Amino acid sequence: MPQPKMVIAEGNGFLGRHLARYFRERGYRVVVLGRGAAPSLDNYVRWDGCSLGSWAAKLEGAYALINLAGRSVDCRYTAANKREIIASRVESTCVLGAAVAACAVPPRVWLNSSTATIYADTTGEQPANTEAMGRIGESFSVEVARAWEAAFAACPAPATRKVVLRTAIVLGRDGGAFPVMARLARWGLGSPQGHGRQWMSWLHIADFCRAVEFLLHAPAAAGAFNLCAPQPLTNRDFMALLCRQLRPWLRLPQPEWLLEIGAFVLRTETELILKSRKVYPQRLLELGFQFEFPACEAALQELLPHS
């Protein structure tokens, strides 16, 4: 039986590396599309993320296409950066849509990234945002998500099942935001960020890979899915769990004015840590997905086992 083929667009980042390794271990032939210099990976193909090229032939006969392409939002939201953030997501999605449309045998499933920050800032005891009942927000991060999902919806792919991944913060020890958060906590910045009442939706990297696999093989899975653990927690509670695991000797306060200064120095935005994200994976649970790490305490214990 031939190996099923999977194409991961921008699969050389944190999430892509984990997915590529996960599916290779399960017998898939993984093709990675990337814009950087070729890493030491088999089946690595260069593309520019905005125009058709020889890379498009790799989609022919693929079982799955996973699009993770998009410029990092960890930057200052200048007009130029905003344009680039949106364009990198819209253009890559549109050109993948053109490549899928040109296939004689198109991918059976196409999973396209989005973000859980599409939902409105959710405070206090307001219910968590589900796919059916979530309140869509109005900030720049929401504008990005709306444009991303609209581009995906506009791609005609009648023979391909299309799934939107509204992914929360993915926690892993070797990439993404978590190593930075843990390092800062070790240095004494383990107190609540701002008032600490903002909600945090999260997902362990192992459950991210497992959820992607689950959605690939669930025939009824189409449309938007929240990829997050079922137990969101406040920033105050998350930082307390982090410090309980790391046991730093110092915990300096982090008022919002200090975070604004730090964000300016580091060329980033405080929205990334101060926006309240309270999201619930209702559709995943209804289809029968079972989380390995439903609670954050167990996730942190696994990620920081030697602390």
Rank of each mutant, 00 (worst) to 15 (best):
T167Q: 04
A168H: 04
V170R: 05
V170G: 06
D174E: 15
G175L: 02
G176L: 01
A177I: 03
A182T: 02
R183P: 07
L184E: 14
A185L: 01
A185P: 05
L189I: 01
G190M: 01
S191V: 01
P192G: 04
Q193G: 03
G194N: 02
G194L: 04
H195M: 09
Q198G: 03
W202N: 04
W202G: 03
L203G: 07
D207Y: 13
C209M: 09
L215V: 02
L215N: 07
P219W: 06
A220K: 12
A220M: 09
A220G: 11
A222L: 01
N226V: 08
C228G: 03
A229D: 05
P230S: 02
R236D: 08
L241I: 03
L241Q: 12
L242A: 12
L242P: 12
R244M: 06
R247D: 04
R251W: 00
R251K: 14
L252M: 08
E256Q: 13
E256N: 04
I261S: 01
F264E: 14
R267C: 10
K275R: 14
S276Y: 01
K278T: 02
Y280C: 02
E286Q: 15
G288E: 09
Q290D: 12
A298Y: 11
A299W: 10
A299L: 12
A299Y: 11
